[in-house]
C-alpha cells in the first residue's frame, strides 16, 4: 500500500516538474531551460535532497517510461501523414540515415579509442544516436552496459538539441530535409522534438530518420564492434 502511494507521488512529482519546466520554456525559450535538461536537473536535485535513490524513484518512474513503447509506435502517424513526401525522398532519407548512423558510431568509436576510454564504455556509447529503447537493446546485443547507453543517448540528445542552431548556422544547413536528417539522425527523439520547432516537414523527416536509423543501427552495430576491433 505504501509502495503504491509512493509510486503515485513520484509520478505526480514528475508530471508537476514536467508541466512547470514546459511552461517556463514556452515563456523563455532559452537552450538552458530545455524541458529535458531543466526537468532532469530539477528532478535530481529534489530526489537527492529528499534522500530518494534512483532505484526507488523508478518504482513510479517506470510507469512513465512504459509509455515510450506506444509513443515509438505512434511515430507511424507523422510518417503516414508525410507518406507522399517520403516516397519522393525515400533514397535521400535512407542515405542520410545511413550516413548519420555510420558517422555517429565510427566517430565515437575512434575518438574513444584515441582517448583511451575503456572498450566496454565505448561499446555502450556506439548506439548513442539511436532512440533510447532501441539504444538499450542494441547495447545489450553488443554486450555493453544499458544504463551507460542511456547516459550516452541522453547527453547526445540534449547536446545535439542545444548545439543544432549553431551547427545549422555555421555549416549552413538551412533546408528542412537537411535539418530533419541532422536532428533525427543525431539526437533521435529529442532532436525530433526540436525539429518540430522548425516546421512539420523537418519534424516528419526527423522522425522517419530516427526510425530508419534504429533499424540501420541495430544491423550495423555488431559490424562496428568488429571494424573497431573491440
Amino acid at each position: 500500500m505504501r509502495d503504491i502511494f509512493f509510486s503515485i507521488s513520484m509520478i505526480l512529482l514528475t508530471l508537476v516538474i514536467y508541466f512547470v519546466v514546459t511552461w517556463l520554456y514556452k515563456k523563455y525559450p532559452l537552450p538552458i531551460l530545455l524541458p529535458i535538461l531543466s526537468g532532469t536537473v530539477l528532478m535530481i536535485i529534489i530526489l537527492v535532497s529528499l534522500g530518494i535513490s534512483y532505484e526507488k524513484y523508478m518504482i513510479g518512474g517506470q510507469v512513465i517510461t512504459s509509455l515510450l513503447g506506444p509513443t515509438v509506435v505512434a511515430l507511424a502517424y507523422p510518417l503516414y501523414k508525410q507518406r507522399d513526401f517520403l516516397k519522393k525522398y525515400l533514397f535521400t532519407i535512407i542515405g542520410g540515415a545511413f550516413i548519420a548512423t555510420l558517422t555517429a558510431m565510427l566517430s565515437v568509436g575512434l575518438l574513444g579509442k584515441a582517448l583511451r576510454i575503456d572498450s566496454g564504455f565505448i561499446i555502450s556509447l556506439l548506439p548513442k544516436s539511436l532512440t533510447t529503447p532501441v539504444a538499450i537493446e542494441v547495447a545489450k546485443v553488443l554486450e555493453g552496459n544499458a544504463s551507460m547507453a542511456v547516459v550516452g543517448v541522453t547527453i547526445t540528445g540534449i547536446f545535439g538539441v542545444i548545439i543544432s542552431p549553431y551547427i545549422f548556422k555555421y555549416v549552413r544547413i538551412h533546408t528542412s530535409i537537411g535539418r530533419g536528417i541532422a536532428l533525427g539522425g543525431t539526437s533521435h527523439a529529442m532532436g525530433t522534438a526540436k525539429a518540430a520547432e522548425y516546421d512539420e516537414l523537418a519534424f516528419s523527416i526527423s522522425s522517419i530518420t530516427m526510425s530508419i536509423c534504429a533499424i540501420i543501427g541495430s544491423i550495423i552495430g555488431p559490424l562496428m564492434v568488429w571494424v573497431l576491433q573491440m
Partner: peptide, 14 residues
C-alpha cells in the same frame, strides 16, 4: 514526448 524521457535521464544520478 519529452515527459517520457525524464525518468530515463534522471538515471544519470547513478
Amino acid at each position: 514526448l519529452m515527459l517520457f524521457f525524464i525518468p530515463a535521464t534522471v538515471g544519470v544520478m547513478d
